[in-house]
Design a protein around this nucleic acid. Structure first.
Lengths: 142, 142
DNA sequence: TTACTTCCTCTAGCGACTATAGGAGCAAGC
DNA sequence: GCTTGCTCCTATAGTCGCTAGAGGAAGTAA
């Protein structure tokens, strides 16, 4: 075996991206197809590990694949202005803040629903009634 | 045509659930298969409309299909204790609150990332650097 | 009759994986 | 050398909750 070549299992362990997911990323072109050993095994290097970690971290932060594709392309051109990376992140931040606002409205509605439930029979249940009738909701966010 | 029968288009308009989605719900057994007209068109009634609205509202509140299935089953047994409906809603509320907490940690990280970006070149960009290195994150939530 | 809309079924696609089947390669122990 | 057991390979199908499209039939208004 070539010295220093990293197997897919090892790459998975070090990057935190699962083995089938790494193959999937290769398939959709998010990862380059690595060279193969004589026995047809993928041989990754340190650069691949960095890329995988970058992808994993960005996914954990909720970036979508298209955003990640763009961000990865930017890392390959370190001399360019980071304006684009910045605006992708800023846009993503706005989206997340909107999702938070929406979820907070929902959780308020749910909490009210659960608290007002008298724990009696289904036919008197506030949870069921609110679900059946949007008019019983306080917020307009859904 | 039978008087009072509601077409799928009308049902969609009144319930806010799209036509293909209604058919999809029938297919997966979330909606009962309605009777058909001579020309093979679905004929819905008021009960179907309520059920569709219930589903739509629950989906908007972020309930999953399995939860909705259970909640719908409960509405059919109005004399039972609402304990189950209550616990489904309470569990869902906890899940949403966890999602909110997680998103807030992420938005904090993103905001820091964007604010610390010096708007220079990619090679100095904080956005790119943080993504490449999880160690630069402040929270452990991801 | 013609034109238009609504409806029908069936199939495939989305995103981002995950799971399964059926093999082949490889290292260690006997 | 042989067996055991692990990792790896490809290819396909499934997940969730829809959505889109093809290709055709039925209903409606002028």
């Amino acid at each position: 075996m070539t010295v220093g070549a990293i197997s897919i299992g090892e790459a998975a362990r070090q990057s935190g991206v699962k083995v089938p997911t790494i193959r999937f990323y290769e398939q959709i072109g998010l990862m380059p197809a690595p060279p193969r050993s004589e026995g047809n095994r993928r041989q990754f290097d340190e650069k691949d590990l960095s890329r995988l970690s970058f992808i994993r971290h960005a996914r954990e932060l909720g970036f979508e694949m298209d955003d990640i594709r763009e961000l990865l392309a930017l890392t390959e051109q370190p001399q360019r202005s980071c304006h684009e990376a910045d605006s992708i992140a800023a846009r993503h931040l706005r989206e997340i803040e909107m999702r938070i606002a929406k979820l907070q409205a929902l959780s308020g509605e749910l909490r009210r629903m659960v608290e007002e439930c008298g724990h009696g029979k289904v036919c008197e249940c506030q949870v069921i009634h609110v679900l059946a009738d949007h008019g019983k909701c306080r917020s307009d966010t859904h």
